[in-house]
């Protein structure tokens, strides 16, 4: 107030700096697509280039999407918006026509999803497996067990903490199925805790509480170094973790990008992609995180 000239100057400087940041950001945003498309010969841009892919947290947290999506985008000219949520929410989005294509791992719910007419063109993509993990000390004494239901029964009677996703994801749905087979109602028990979060966050919480949980092997391997949890029970056929890609039924709404979704399904089961899937993670973890399965049936996987 005392010095109007100075005030004016300050205000202008402030305004100028804000504008500068905005311009820099705008330029940064604007040049990005150009850079990526200049890398190789540009494919003809599709009429409707945006695809919404609703998928599970494990495909993102393991780093798989970061490898596959840029290749798909370069090959086809589509731009994918991957929304990483639980399989339950992914299918809810698909059911409302808010996503174009799904990459999920909850076979029982997927069958219901297909029966309800929400999806078309469901294809088996890959599998890995679920494992039951817990603290090194293994207070419940389940180490080496190969029957998942028995392992859960033992955890429930040992007073050890079991940490559940509690988010209706594919992993959570499998866990609930196992409790049902064990005839145990864990909800409300003091040793049963629900996080309501993704697999990575749930693993952190499990490690902190010294508890047990069920996880897909891919997320486990990519977070093993920080959580220090150990694989205690595995190899039960019921623990197979099967991923399907599903095209949302284009009849639901004309806003669904059917062509883009079909291109994505074709890409996921294509020979080149399947080869990459099988190699993914070998350099970093010494073993593959996913096993390519295009063209097989679920029954064939179960008999492996």
């Amino acid at each position: 107030m005392k010095n109007p000239v100075l005030n004016c100057l300050v205000t202008r400087l402030l305004l100028a700096s804000v504008l500068l940041v905005l311009v820099v950001t705008a330029v940064g945003c604007g040049t990005r697509p150009a850079q990526t498309s200049n890398a190789t010969e540009t494919p003809p841009a599709p009429a409707n280039p945006d695809i919404i892919l609703a998928t599970t947290t494990s495909t993102r947290d393991s780093g798989l999407l970061d490898v596959l999506l840029p290749i798909f985008e370069q090959k086809t000219g589509y731009r994918v918006k991957p929304i990483a949520v639980g399989s339950g929410q992914a299918m809810a989005m698909g059911g409302r026509g808010e996503a174009d294509v799904l990459l999920v791992h909850a076979p029982d719910s997927e069958v219901k999803f297909m029966q309800a007419g929400h999806g078309v063109n469901r294809k088996l993509v890959m599998h890995n497996d679920f494992i039951i993990i817990g603290p090194d000390a293994d207070t419940a004494g389940i180490k080496g067990m190969t029957v998942a239901v028995d392992a859960l029964k033992k955890i429930s009677t040992s007073n050890a903490i079991f940490v559940s996703r509690g988010d209706n994801s594919g992993t959570h749905q499998l866990e609930l199925k196992l409790w049902k087979l064990a005839s145990i109602e864990p909800k409300g028990q003091t040793w049963y805790q629900e996080t309501g979060q993704g697999m990575g966050a749930t693993l952190n919480i499990t490690a902190e509480k010294g508890g047990y949980t069920i996880t897909d092997r891919a997320t486990y391997l990519s977070t093993e170094k920080t959580t220090n949890l150990k694989i205690l029970a595995e190899k039960d056929p019921i623990l197979l973790n099967i991923y399907h890609v599903i095209q949302v039924n284009p009849a639901k709404s004309e806003k669904i990008n059917a062509a883009g979704a079909r291109a994505f399904v074709d890409f996921m089961v294509g020979a080149d992609t399947q080869k990459m899937l099988g190699e993914f993670g070998k350099d970093k973890y010494g073993q593959a995180l996913f096993f390519p399965d295009a063209g097989k049936t679920e029954a064939e996987l179960g008999s492996q």
Partner: peptide, 20 residues
Amino acid sequence: NITGQTRVLTTAIVMETSKG
């Protein structure tokens, strides 16, 4: 929280934390 499109510092922090 889409890579290269809508990822900002706060959402990246949540994601990196959940990844361990």
